[in-house]
Design a protein around this nucleic acid. Sequence first.
DNA 1: CGGCATCCTTACTGATACTG
DNA 2: CAGTATCAGTAAGGATGCCG
Lengths: 109, 109
Amino acid sequence: MENTNICPVDYVVDLISGKWKVLIIWNLKFGKKRFGQLQRILTGISKKVLSQHLKELENSGLIIRTVIPSIPVQVEYSLTERGMELSAILEEINQFGAILLKGPTVPKS
Amino acid sequence: MENTNICPVDYVVDLISGKWKVLIIWNLKFGKKRFGQLQRILTGISKKVLSQHLKELENSGLIIRTVIPSIPVQVEYSLTERGMELSAILEEINQFGAILLKGPTVPKS
DNA sequence: CGGCATCCTTACTGATACTG
DNA sequence: CAGTATCAGTAAGGATGCCG
């Protein structure tokens, strides 16, 4: 997750390389979600890893963290404009990946 | 690098998530390269890691490995059709990443 | 020259318990 | 509820040497 790259592509790939980052962004596309909701959706993720990834995505300017000072506290996460743009790219990647998954592993070039 | 995903996006992200995968594809875009060439271009990569990544990219159907049976042997790597398609997506990601790198880390949403 | 085998180090991920 | 702290396991990455 360390990023000492000069290359923008590597930078973005690092942003979404975590085991769960893509899934988080993917889910936030459909509207804001609370911490607990995300944890339930991303079956198996631990609180530590989730908050860690959320923090990284926030630092990258891809998501926004909103604290609702109720008791007990609620925290909502949603995509920023940039997060939206990224999820559009993820859509394309999705198309591409779907084709790869259907076809043979090593097609003739 | 393990891939038990159902999601095509994760699948593709896994394909390019290695520390050097993107750089390898990026370089092969400009024509086929030999093992030694790649090792020189990707400053700091070890032979083990390079061959490991090349093998994974080959298994993914993104690059082609061609052995030239001279003495000593030569091996050339080049992109497949799919590798080309992927590099097109990488171009887009590059645009996006460049913007992220220029702008502030956390822009207002 | 290309690349596999071995060993070692580090980074990532996870389970659990505890706090505001 | 939404985290942080600590401890532990696993997997990726790297250094080096050997082989066809």
